[in-house]
Design a binder for these strands. Structure first.
Lengths: 147, 147
DNA sequence: TCAAGATTGATGCAAGTGCATCTATTGGTA
DNA sequence: TACCAATAGATGCACTTGCATCAATCTTGA
């Protein structure tokens, strides 16, 4: 925890930054070019859609996506205003909110997916064989809490 | 270019987002906790220091770091104002600027490094063996233009 | 050599982010 | 039960980013 990093670790870190910037740049450009909302919106929609009718509490969504609390709070505001997300008071916790995706949110996610998918292929897929992509995904998985 | 991505590619992309967010979160928190400027400042300082006395043109720095043009323009403004970067008109190109790091910029980078290094170890290094970190770095390297 | 187009970097304005802090509620402890 | 720390989520304010566009300069090609 308090050791200096190895050369290899420093190189990996530096490349993580560049690779991420390049990949996100490509994907955001494709989404914007198609007149679609940005990645954060997709992330929220997907996570809420996966959660099903029960929805998710704000803090769960925040933990899943690793967004900042204040950031997510305002993002959800915007998406609620746009009609893609619904907020309801939590029955279990008077402080809390339950967030669910709306029909319009599901439609938006479906509309975004084809563009997003092509962008992922362009930004990531085409650089790897399937086996490499699996290895890459495994290594990336080590870096975040949820496994 | 126009194919759908494989499952493995989509998973790798999703994990790239999460891993990056987690790692950057850790590193920014350590820098901020030590009262130091953020990552972008370090990136600029390092790149300019590597460039030596000749400095770099704005567009070169932009390409190296994959920053947005308008973003870098204003970041350099702030760093110049803080005395860490010097701007000079390019002798070869009347439109252009040559950016160099100042003595104070070098000092700042040196001061940031120990904190940054520990953060890199915490965010990345400790999750991998050296061999894994090398493999990881190689795979990441595929995703950005400069090799 | 001169006009048309491309490139470099800056900037006004709107939108998003980060920080600190706030209110409301909950859970733990005495 | 009554208090106090902890947690959920919202928000005011300053700063940063994104978008569109600008002015200045360079390059190309007739």
């Amino acid at each position: 925890m308090s050791d200096r990093p190895s050369e290899a670790a420093v190189r990996a870190w530096a490349r993580l930054e560049r690779a991420h910037r390049a990949a996100v740049g490509t994907v955001e450009a494709r989404l914007a070019g198609a007149g679609l909302p940005d990645l954060a919106w997709y992330d929220v929609l997907l996570e809420l859609e996966r959660a099903g009718t029960g929805g998710l509490r704000s803090f769960q969504l925040q933990a899943a996506l690793l967004f900042q609390q204040y950031n997510l709070s305002r993002l959800v505001d915007r998406m609620t205003e746009a009609g893609h997300v619904a907020k309801a008071p939590s029955p279990d916790d008077g402080r809390g909110l339950v967030l669910t995706i709306t029909r319009s949110g599901r439609a938006l996610r479906r509309k975004m997916w084809p563009v997003y998918a092509l962008a992922i292929e362009e930004a990531v897929g085409r650089h790897f064989t399937d086996a490499e992509a699996r290895t890459f995904g495994d290594l990336l998985g080590r870096l975040h809490p949820s496994g």
